[in-house]
Design a protein around this nucleic acid. Structure first.
Lengths: 225, 225
DNA sequence: TATATACGGAACTTGCCAGTTTCGGATACC
DNA sequence: GGTATCCGAAACTGGCAAGTTCCGTATATA
C-alpha cells in the first residue's frame, strides 16, 4: 500500500488520461529489488526506472525525491509476508516455530533482511526510514514471535516469567547477523538449529532428542509450499 | 597495524625528511570515527583529512584510494580491544561471561558495531572489506566466546555436545541487531539479560535466582574500569 | 474523432566527491 | 646553512547521479 503520493485532493482531469496508479506497484517492487542488491547509496533512480520499464520522469511525477520513494517502497513490504493474526496452531511451541520455517517464508525474510542491510547505514540518519523499516520488517517479525510465546504461556507449556521481549529477538537477530555479516545462507537447517539450540532452551524446554534418521524434524515439512 | 603502504622496497631519501608514519594512526583513527558516524558512502576523504588535521593529498600519498584506506582502517581495529589469549578465568562460565561486560569493552564493541553498520551495504560487494571486517571484528569476538565455552566444557561445567559455533554468535548477533536495527542502547543490563536469559539456558545452565537487592549481579562489577 | 493528459526516452543542469596538481612553509639530514 | 623532501591548504579536473525539461507517442474520455 503506497502512502499518499498526491498531496492535495486531486482535481480529476475532465478529459484525457488519468494517472496510472497500477504502475506504482511495479516501480516500488523494482526499488525493493535494487535496494536488496546494491543498497541505498548504490541505487540510482535510473536503475529503478529501467527495471520497472518506466521513465525517470515518471518516478519524479509520483515521488518528490529518492528518499521518499525508498521510504514508500519499504512501507510497501509491510503487507507482504506473514500475518500475525492468522498463525497456525500446532499445539506445541516447537511445532509452531518449526511451522514458520517454510521456503516461501524463508525467501521473504531473506529479501527483507537484504533490504534492511542495504539501508543500515542510512537508518541512523533518517528517522522516517527507521520508522518504515521498523513497522514493515522488524515489528511484524517480532510480533509473530511474541504471539507464539504468549500462546505457549497461555497453554502452560512455558513459564510466564520468561523474557518474551528478548527471546522474540533471538531468531531475527541471529538470522540477520548470519546473512548480512557472515554472509552464510539462512536455510532450514540453520533455523532449526536456532530453534532447538537456543530458543527452546531459553524458555526452559528441551528440544526433542536428535533423530538419526531425519535430517531435521519428522513432521516439519508440510505439504503447502 | 596498517598494511604495507609502500609497494616496493622504499629507497630511503639520502637527504631531507622521511615519511612521518606516526601520522598514519591519526588518519586511520579519524577514518574509523567518520565511518562510525556516517558510514562508507557518507564518508568523504575531506572529512577524514580535516578530522586528522591533515591535507587530502597526504591521504593519497599513503593510500591509493578511499577503498584501501577504509580496508586498512578496519584492519587496524583488530589489535585494539580484547585479547583471546589472556582471558581472565573466574572459575565459572557465567563469571567469565559477566567479566567481559566492562565499560571499556562495551564501549569498544559499540564502536566496532557502528563501523560494521556503516559498512554493511558494501560488505557484499567487496570481498577484501568483508575479510577485513571478519578478521578485525567478527572473528575476534566469536573466538573469545568459543574459548570461554570450551573452557567450561573442559572443566565439566557444560556438556561437550552443545553447539559452540552457534551459541558463540548469540551475543554478537543480538547486540548488533539491538544497536543497529532497533537503535536501542547496548548497556550492562541488556548484556546480562542476554547472558542469563539466552546464553546460559542454551548451554544447559540455570542462571542464578533473581536477586531483589542488586540490579544485575552481586559480584559482576569489578574494580578495574 | 478531437483533445487533454500521462507516458517512455533522452537531453540537460547542477552539485558533490574521488583523485590530482600546485604551492609556500616546515623539517630532518648533510 | 643548504637542500631535498614531506607537509597542509587550496585550487582544479572529471565523472556520476539527483532532479528537470522537452518531445513524440499512446490512450482514455467526450
Amino acid at each position: 500500500m503506497p502512502l499518499e503520493t498526491t498531496t492535495t485532493a486531486p482535481e480529476q482531469p475532465r478529459l484525457g488520461r488519468r494517472r496510472d496508479h497500477s504502475r506504482d506497484a511495479d516501480i516500488l517492487d523494482a526499488a525493493i529489488e535494487v535496494l536488496a542488491e546494491v543498497g541505498y547509496d548504490g541505487m540510482t533512480m535510473e536503475m529503478v526506472a529501467s527495471r520497472a520499464k518506466a521513465g525517470k520522469a515518471t518516478l519524479y511525477r509520483r515521488w518528490p525525491s529518492k528518499g521518499e520513494l525508498v521510504v514508500d517502497a519499504v512501507a510497501c513490504m509491510k503487507s507482504k509476508g506473514l500475518d500475525a493474526d492468522h498463525l497456525p496452531d500446532t499445539g506445541s511451541l516447537r511445532g509452531d516455530l518449526v511451522a514458520m520455517v517454510k521456503p516461501r517464508a524463508v525467501e521473504d525474510a531473506d529479501r527483507k533482511l537484504r533490504v534492511m542491510g542495504g539501508l543500515m547505514s542510512v537508518i541512523s540518519r533518517s528517522p522516517e526510514l527507521a520508522e518504515a523499516i521498523s513497522s514493515a520488517i522488524v515489528e511484524p517479525r517480532a510480533e509473530v514471535n511474541r504471539r507464539l510465546f504468549q500462546r505457549a504461556i497461555d497453554r502452560g507449556e512455558i513459564s510466564a516469567d520468561c523474557d518474551v521481549a528478548t527471546i522474540s529477538m533471538v531468531a531475527p537477530s541471529m538470522t540477520a547477523y548470519r546473512l548480512l555479516v557472515t554472509q552464510r545462507p539462512v536455510d532450514r537447517d540453520y533455523l532449526i538449529a536456532i530453534i532447538d539450540g537456543v530458543v527452546l532452551p531459553a524458555v526452559g524446554l528441551k528440544p526433542p532428542p536428535a533423530d538419526p534418521e531425519a535430517q531435521t524434524t519428522p513432521l516439519g515439512r508440510s505439504a503447502d509450499d
